[in-house]
Design a protein around this nucleic acid. Structure first.
Lengths: 217, 217
DNA sequence: TAGATTGTTAATCGATTAACAATC
DNA sequence: TAGATTGTTAATCGATTAACAATC
């Protein structure tokens, strides 16, 4: 029953750490391109303008071991981050709502690692069905039900207008989807066990505006 | 010198609070549409699935007064949130990079309050220049310099490919822009006083994937 | 008045930062 | 060995949660 190789209760990874990890990964990929073999936490911290002890702690969560006095092996570090984040696996996802935001995400992952692979987009708009965006086909919404089951897709992305979000989410759950990335501001009402990640653009705008209007100091 | 009307040092608003406020605003706008005049913190908390004392605290930051035993006046609460977030003002912004993500943002704000108004998009791609997306014109990149000065725009949004982000950011700063919303994963190197809000899609993906792979209990 | 809810103050919890020992 | 950096443990800081008094 117990997973071997870990004889201690796995420390819960803080969400702030989790959010920072892809940033390290991105930076290290650039570093590797420059042919740098070893890199230290203070060096990373300086480039990313954050605290070096935080870098050490964050990286430790991925299970990597660094060499005192030297730092980390760039290649090992990238590998460790990818494994930990699950970015090495193919995390297949469906996307519903092939409007502007949906199209953006489909096109985005062509050039940028999102950590997940959108394998199909769905829409009810006849004008969008049949299109190919970022190499991904936009299919008729009703096709989602049979395809999800057949392909065993566990992740759904909602980029529909607000009013459709709840219904789409429920459909996704009925398709066997376990995790939903919701880009609409709607508050989804779903079974407890479904993992919902809400991404609200206006939250970021709020922080930016507030910091502009209330300068520190 | 001192701003009147506040005889206490203004309490710093926690960033988590700031990020939650637009969510309340969205919910309350729906509530108002239903004709509900008063709403209590526990009622909000129940709908948004969060803690009621947190709702009370968050709302208190906006300066609103509620009535014990009754709650808040919906209209006043919306007003208070808008004022506090600065969403009532017209916060004009430039967007550089009219690709998929840039287009998505331009189209998004047509239907959704982002808290800021994109007044022009810029690109170097001949095929994009001249287009109108979400009612916003895409102009030649070089036009940004003269326009920023003339229109006194203080906010810039970067939705370019990574490799262009640093250069665009520097140009924006030279245009007098004070706050930058950066959608590229690049780490911008800019003067201290420039406020940079980074929005990394892969951070959200990382959290979703991790929670899917490491269920809590 | 009674009940419900706000608003404030205290306690808890968790993340960040600091200190320092271990080690390459 | 000496210097630099990791890794761990302790201290600090800040946000969330709980408790309770004030009030409509």
């Amino acid at each position: 029953m117990a997973v071997s190789g870990k004889n201690k209760v796995q420390a819960q990874v803080p969400e702030p750490t989790l959010k920072r990890l892809p940033g390290y990964l991105y930076f290290l990929e650039r570093t590797r391109e420059e042919g740098i073999i070893n890199i230290s936490a203070p060096a990373i911290a300086k480039s990313l303008k954050c605290d070096s002890t935080q870098v050490v702690k964050d990286l430790a969560y991925t299970g990597i071991k660094g060499k005192p006095g030297v730092g980390y092996n760039t290649y090992e570090l990238i590998h460790s981050l990818e494994i930990f984040l699950g970015f090495n696996r193919i995390n297949e996802a469906f996307l519903v709502g092939a409007g502007n935001l949906g199209s953006a995400l489909m096109a985005y992952q062509e050039h940028q690692s999102l950590g997940l692979k959108i394998i199909a987009g769905f829409d009810i708009d006849e004008n969008k069905i049949g299109k190919t965006i970022g190499g991904i086909h936009v299919l008729e919404y009703n096709k989602m039900f049979s395809l999800a089951e057949r392909l065993n897709v566990k992740i759904g992305i909602i980029t529909t207008p607000d009013h459709a979000a709840q219904e789409v989410a429920e459909d996704m759950v009925n398709c066997g989807i376990k995790g939903i990335w919701n880009f609409s501001p709607a508050n989804l009402n779903l079974p407890e066990e479904i993992i919902v990640q809400r991404t609200s653009m206006s939250s970021y705008a709020a922080v930016l505006l507030h910091r502009l209007q209330n300068p520190t100091t």
